[in-house]
Design a protein around this nucleic acid. Structure first.
Lengths: 178, 178
DNA sequence: GTGGTCATGTAACAGGTTACATGATTAC
DNA sequence: GTAATCATGTAACCTGTTACATGACCAC
């Protein structure tokens, strides 16, 4: 379901786009929130067309199909946004690794945390660069106060920072033991 | 892969256990980190037995099969813990909803955040209760400094708190606009 | 012309969820 | 005896990943 929603959302933001554009859109704007490759996107767009949520507005060069959202699609997106309860199953490889870390001896566990920290630091830098890039330009006239995607980016940055703080504290704790 | 690792980890912690016990273990200790139903666990244990990572140590009443980890299994678990890079694809329904929230008007968006906040508060209460329960008892003699699963629980609590703070700030921001 | 990137698709597989199905044991 | 819970399994389905495959167009 969520893939559909993400596609409808992007299509709303873009006005209209091809499957290829949407795949690029996933790499850029939504990558930290949701991911999908083209092999998942193309069949899904076909199904969504069959279900009347999107339509092929035009066909361009190189077989390019330009999709746009229908009013049914807009309704579906709206219903999900308003009605969806995020009971989403928590599944985190990082947390699983953290859970099992005490099975290693402190020195080894420190190495693992060190690598994790490096990874998280890099990710944080990427997200902060994204934020900076988005906010470098002045807000255009008539734009709404909250920019599209900003709330999610803020959440991502905060959570990444929290993970980093946790890793530092966990390392300090292990060092006291080692 | 991660399901295997989680099962090997629980089996290490428990010494030995049946599929049923492991399913219960998922509901309790690891639920905030990883999840799996019995319909996934039983076939996986069968495959792991075929691969030599676990063995059926004994068969009890009601067809109960008691598994224990083999040295091969311990090696696999260790290798994963030491060598696994957490490049895990980020996929979060909450973040997706946050991303698309500006598509609603501020009043509706506030309602969604209100519901999310209630959910997150409840989850935080559960995790904190778990922490309190674990730390109510004095640390047994000879136990290592960090209790099994504590690092992950700490991470979970911190991230849940961060999400809550974010929701509050996002609501305040939307209220200014409404 | 040839290498890159645009653009779409399919197929095989791995991981996960929901529903179906069955029987043994225990508590009342 | 009957309801709850222990205990295991299978089947259908959905989602997601990796790999394969193909052709159009553009820049050099």
């Amino acid at each position: 379901m969520s893939l559909r929603i993400a596609l409808l959302g992007l299509l709303t933001a873009y006005g209209s786009a091809s499957g290829y554009d949407l795949a690029k859109g996933f790499e850029r704007s939504v990558a930290h929130v949701w991911q999908a490759g083209h092999s998942q996107i193309y069949p899904e767009l076909a199904k969504m067309t069959a279900d009347g949520l999107v339509t092929v507005e035009a066909e361009g060069a190189r077989g390019r199909k330009i999709y746009s959202i229908t009013s049914e699609g807009r309704a579906e997106l709206r219903a999900w946004l308003i009605g969806h309860d995020p009971t989403g199953p928590a599944r985190s490889e990082v947390a699983l690794q953290a859970f099992l870390l005490p099975l290693l001896d402190p020195g080894e566990a420190l190495d693992v945390l060190e690598r994790l920290k490096a990874y998280v630091e890099q990710k944080l830098a990427e997200l902060e660069a994204m934020w900076a890039a988005k906010h470098a330009l002045p807000v255009p006239e008539g734009a709404s106060g909250v920019k599209f995607g900003d709330l999610a980016l803020d959440l991502g940055i905060r959570q990444t920072r929290t993970t980093l703080e946790w890793a530092n504290d966990a390392m300090a704790q292990l060092e006291r033991q080692a």
